[in-house]
């Protein structure tokens, strides 16, 4: 078996010497270089995000922090500083949001789903656009 494989390798090695690689056309380099000029100028308009990644991270951390604080300190918000402050003003800000638990879990689920999808989509597009 091993002898067969060795012989097969030797035969193919011999056969492959007859399939010599071909040279690229003579004007190949100049054609590539001619196409590089438009590429070079378009590099000026490279995409740069308006809000840097670090800012998004800070916003995310703040948002999660505030949401967590509200969730675990629901009672503390009742009659808290905001309401005390608002009581002293004439603004008609008397909102009292009493959503059902189902709505709460639905919104939470939606946010979680969105969070997961962002990473999946990012991964998908990165792979697609990779060389």
């Amino acid at each position: 078996m091993e002898q067969d494989e060795k012989q097969l390798d030797q035969l193919i090695k011999k056969v492959m010497t007859y399939d010599t690689p071909e040279a690229a056309p003579a004007d190949f380099t100049s054609k590539v270089m001619a196409q590089l000029q438009p590429v070079k100028t378009s590099a000026v308009t490279t995409h740069k995000p308006l809000i840097p990644t670090i800012a998004w991270i800070v916003i995310g951390v703040l948002f999660v922090g505030v949401a967590t604080w509200i969730m675990f300190n629901a009672d503390a918000t009742k009659g808290g500083y905001l309401q005390q402050f608002m009581a002293g003003t004439d603004l008609p800000l008397q909102w009292n949001f009493n959503g059902s638990k189902t709505l709460f879990y639905a919104v939470l689920g939606l946010v979680a789903m969105l969070g997961v999808q962002i990473f999946i989509l990012k991964d998908y597009f990165e792979k697609r656009l990779a060389v």
Partner: peptide, 21 residues
């Protein structure tokens, strides 16, 4: 130095052309 890239193309053009071929 875009022109330096021509050297790289010259060096690897046969390899790339043969893969494609």
């Amino acid at each position: 130095d875009t022109l330096a890239y021509a050297q790289l193309v010259d060096r690897y053009k046969d390899l790339v052309f043969n893969v494609a071929l």
